[in-house]
Simulated scan of single mutants.
Amino acid sequence: MRICLLFCLTLLIGNTFAKENSNVKQHKSIEVFGAGSIQSVPDRFSFSLSIEEKGKVAAHLNQAIIEKSNSVIQALFEIGVDKQQVQSLQIRFNPWIEYKNNTQEQKGFILTRQITVTLDSLTKYEQSIDAVLNLGVSHINQFIFSNSQADKHYQAALQQALINAQQRATDMAKVLGLKLSGVISILEQTSGQPAPIMAKARQFQASESYQAGEMLTEARVKVVFALQNASK
């Protein structure tokens, strides 16, 4: 009886291993990475500028900031910038401290207003920079180029990445006498944020040197394909 039970148990284990090995053979797969990219010229431009006033009376500083801000905004309107493209809500109020002979002295306050300008024309971009520089703003920074078709470009790059992954998997499988039989999983590895191609951008020093350059939208995916013998 014991020998019979042992034989049955051995047979059961053997069948289980055989099924597992059979499943392994039926689920051959290949994991590949695909990449795609789209180049585009930005058609949106934004920058921020700061207007700063120093003094001892906060009310006077506020009035000076309002007057200078109005001058800047009016200059932008005169060259055709829409009201919706100008934001001037951010205000900072800090103590004005200077150091002399290793001692600090509070001389008053510093009031700063930040204005953000977004444009859809390179010509207006050039004119805007020149206009605000002529008004003596304190700082101009955060130059950002973007593209209104960013999502469309990313979808195109994503399609390229999938085609690239499929082609790579096909070529690899062919060498091993296999072929693709379906997709097991797809993992998107990028978020679709375009990046400027730095080599084609220039520093902005004068109107004649402005150049938008190009933007590179990249997509990367990881795809797992099921495999089968090429003869099937």
Rank of each mutant, 00 (worst) to 15 (best):
Q87V: 09
Q87H: 05
Q87T: 10
S88R: 05
S88Y: 14
S88L: 11
L89F: 13
Q90F: 08
I91A: 05
F93L: 15
P95S: 12
I97N: 03
I97S: 04
I97A: 06
Y99R: 13
Y99F: 09
Y99D: 09
Y99E: 15
Y99N: 13
Y99V: 15
K100I: 09
K100S: 14
K100C: 03
N101A: 11
T103E: 13
T103A: 12
Q104P: 10
K107M: 06
K107A: 02
K107L: 10
G108D: 06
I110L: 02
L111K: 08
Q114T: 04
I115D: 01
I115T: 12
T116Y: 02
V117F: 01
T118P: 02
L119C: 08
D120M: 06
D120R: 06
S121L: 09
S121D: 14
T123W: 07
K124H: 12
K124Y: 06
Y125L: 04
E126N: 12
Q127F: 15
Q127L: 15
S128H: 11
S128I: 10
S128P: 05
I129C: 01
I129H: 00
I129W: 02
D130R: 05
A131M: 08
A131K: 08
A131I: 07
V132Q: 04
N134G: 06
G136P: 03
V137R: 01
S138D: 14
I140S: 02
I140L: 08
I140H: 03
N141G: 04
N141D: 10
N141C: 03
N141R: 09
Q142P: 07
Q142H: 15
F143Q: 01
I144V: 11
S146H: 01
S146D: 08
N147L: 04
N147V: 02
N147A: 05
S148P: 12
Q149M: 06
A150I: 11
A150T: 13
A150G: 12
K152A: 11
H153G: 02
Y154M: 13
Y154P: 06
Q159G: 07
Q160N: 08
A161L: 00
A161K: 00
L162A: 09
L162P: 04
L162E: 13
I163D: 05
I163L: 06
Q167K: 03
R168F: 06
A169M: 08
D171A: 10
D171K: 10
D171F: 07
D171E: 09
M172Q: 13
M172W: 12
K174Y: 13
K174Q: 15
V175R: 06
V175C: 04
L176T: 12
G177I: 00
G177L: 00
L178E: 07
K179T: 10
K179D: 11
K179L: 07
L180V: 07
S181A: 13
S181P: 03
G182N: 09
G182L: 05
V183W: 01
I184M: 03
S185T: 05
I186M: 14
I186Y: 14
I186D: 12
Q189N: 10
Q189E: 12
T190H: 03
T190Y: 12
S191E: 14
S191G: 02
P194W: 14
A195K: 08
